[in-house]
């Protein structure tokens, strides 16, 4: 089954991580991608900070451009990766092994991807 795993964190807590530690975890993340290459179908992307986001949504007079992310939540998605594993337990095991998970405010969201489009036929 295909899952998208989204790496979320809390920017204000990210800023408190000492640079050496952040560097070490970053290195471990590279290794994680290499170690799990057989389960990863798309490395996905790492995102620039949420402070660089711009949102476009529909207003009374058509689309409006707004500074900032669409959601005002404290947590922000920092990147995502697509994996293909047999079931949710395997996806959870992979999420648990993500090196960033030990940092404060970090969570990994696991979402199944729609692959069967027969429901829309």
């Amino acid at each position: 089954m295909k899952y998208v795993i989204m790496f979320t964190s809390t920017p204000e807590l990210d800023a408190q991580v000492p640079p050496e530690r952040a560097q070490a975890v970053y290195g471990a993340m590279y290794q994680w991608f290499a170690d799990n290459a057989d389960k990863i179908t798309d490395n996905g992307v790492e995102l620039q900070p949420a402070s660089t986001a711009t949102s476009v949504k529909y207003g009374a007079n058509g689309p409006v451009v707004v500074d900032g992310p669409y959601s005002e939540a404290r947590e922000a998605i920092g990147g995502f990766t697509v994996i293909d594993v047999p079931d949710l337990d395997a996806a959870i095991a992979l999420a648990k092994s993500w090196p960033g998970i030990e940092l404060p405010g970090v969570a990994v969201e696991v979402r199944p991807a729609v692959t069967d489009y027969s429901q829309f036929e």
Binding site: P86, D87, L88, D89, A91, V110
Partner: peptide, 14 residues
């Protein structure tokens, strides 16, 4: 069904 939760007795550490 949608998230692929397996119906299985977990083994090992789990």
């Amino acid at each position: 069904g949608a998230a692929g939760i397996p119906l299985r007795i977990p083994e090992g550490d789990e």
